[in-house]
Design a protein around this nucleic acid. Structure first.
Length: 423
RNA sequence: GGAGAGCUGGCUGAGCGGUCGAAAGCGGCGGUCUUGAAAACCGUUGAAGGUUUAUCCCUUCCUGGGGUUCGAAUCCCUAGCUCUCCGCCA
């Protein structure tokens, strides 16, 4: 959520900023609502003040043993008026909150214009796509004889599910280990396990609700819980409603979790293989930082994700997302795209975002600034480090050999008991 | 799953339906003292919002929601959470 004061005082600056995303802000509707809010708030508070002072007078009169009947007569109609005013104020607040919750974050000045991924800017690339003396297979064909079974996934659950058995299951576990070890020992993150089912408040805090309910799996209990679409949700919500001591910052968490996405808007896209599943494993890295440190933290966090790709010797490129491609809550996002020979394309394997104070305001996640002595909003960041399923298929596709075997990258071998190839 | 107890500021913990944003202690901040530090002593110290150039002032917040009342931290209902005992279970 953006600062409501921004809309009251800097409307001329904010509206064009939002327009960069293609977000049309209805100024007239907002101004009308804001005027009504101001009016009813003052009216309600005046009535509350009157009730308080009159009630106090009754209390004092009673204490002195005076007759309170005339005073009581004076407040007779106050109650109804107040109730009506409070109801109206509450309605307007709800309406205003809904309006504000639907507004995306302000983009960082560095974010380029553009409406879709075509306008994203390549920042750099690392490694080159491998050359093959044969026609490389994709992970579906490679996986068929190694224990990657989509039919089984479909039988047990449905489409967009997979069963991994044997060496591929072990490879996935090894990747999780390598990623967590690297982030905790070399990058300074604390390892954390969190609930994989979360409540609506948590999803609202990170911005998935109310706008993106269609992408979530919801359970039927009361109250309903949601399967997490990313560990970002439970991990970032660690600091919801907390005032953090300045000495504790930055907070850095690394979290392994499954992620569940209904992919409601993705029918027909990436139907083949493990690229787009309803369930996948991911290592998420999250940072909670002082506002002035978030830009640098964003660069560092992205490097932490890139380090994993480099350790695994996977060719990738870093993209700066354009205005239209940057997510609702993010101010600036780098996507890391890994080379997939089976698709002959770079595909997203990590998304690293700086949310600035957008999530923090929804979360009421604050720190006490020693300079002002006041609680102020923190900045939140997160990135995948990395999506494990896509890393698995990147290794399979990039390291396939003429002999049909798949080479295990050197850094990963210790996690597989020294295994150098599979297949 | 059954029975009971509780939820108050950064933390611990008092709180009679009225003058309670809330005693006290701890912690934090400022000061006195000290070569410096500690201790001791003194003072100060919640958050959000409205109005305002600013001060003042006003409103709201004692787990969430609803109710009773002129007036609710206090009474009632409800949800959530925590703790204790029993049952069950990994």
């Amino acid at each position: 959520m953006l600062d409501p004061r921004l809309f009251r005082t800097e409307l001329d600056i904010v509206v064009p900023q939002l327009a960069r995303r293609g977000f049309v802000f209805n100024r007239a509707a907002y101004s009308g609502l804001e005027a009504r809010r101001k009016d009813i708030q003052v009216k309600t508070q005046d009535l509350q003040n009157e009730r308080n002072s009159r009630s106090k007078a009754i209390g004092q009169a009673k204490a002195k043993g005076e007759d309170i009947a005339p005073l009581m007569a004076q407040v007779q109609h106050l109650g109804d008026q107040l109730k009506a005013a409070e109801a109206e104020w509450s309605d307007i607040q709800t309406e205003m909150a809904a309006l504000m919750e639907g507004i995306p974050n302000i983009l960082d000045p560095a974010v380029p214009d553009g409406k879709d991924e075509v306008a994203n800017i390549e920042i750099h690339r690392w490694g080159g796509p491998p050359t093959f003396a044969f026609e490389p297979q994709d992970h579906v064909d490679l996986g068929a004889k190694l224990g990657m079974n989509f039919e089984l996934g479909a039988k047990i659950a449905g489409s967009r599910f997979v069963v991994l058995t044997g060496v591929l299951a072990r490879l996935q576990r090894a990747l999780i280990q390598l990623m967590l070890d690297t982030h905790t020992s070399a990058h300074g993150y604390s390892e954390v396990y969190v609930p994989f089912l979360v409540n609506a408040d948590s999803l609202r805090g990170t911005g998935q609700l109310p706008k993106f309910a269609a992408d979530l799996f919801k359970t039927h209990g009361d109250p309903s819980l949601y399967l997490i679409p990313t560990a970002e949700v439970p991990v970032t919500n660690i600091v919801r409603d907390v005032i953090i001591d300045a000495k504790e910052l930055p907070l850095k968490f690394a979290c392994h979790s499954p992620c569940f996405r209904s992919e409601a808007g993705a029918y027909g896209r990436d139907v083949r293989g493990m690229i787009r599943q309803h369930q996948f494993e991911k290592i998420e890295i999250v940072q909670i930082v002082k506002p002035e440190e978030s830009a640098q933290a964003h660069e560092e966090l992205t490097r932490h994700a890139e380090t994993i790709l480099e350790k695994l010797e996977l060719p990738y490129r870093r993209m700066l997302l354009c205005a239209g491609d940057t997510g609702f809550s993010a101010s600036k996002t780098y996507d890391l795209e890994v080379w997939l020979p089976g698709q002959n394309a770079y595909r997203e394997i990590s998304s690293c975002s700086n949310f600035k104070d957008f999530q923090a305001r929804r979360l009421q996640a604050r720190w006490r600034n020693p300079d002002t002595g006041k609680p102020e909003l923190v900045h939140t960041l997160n990135g995948s480090g990395l999506a494990v399923g896509r890393t698995l298929i990147a290794i399979m596709e990039n390291y396939q050999q003429t002999d049909g075997l798949i080479r295990i990258p050197t850094a990963l071998q210790p996690y597989l008991g020294g295994l150098k190839t599979i297949g």
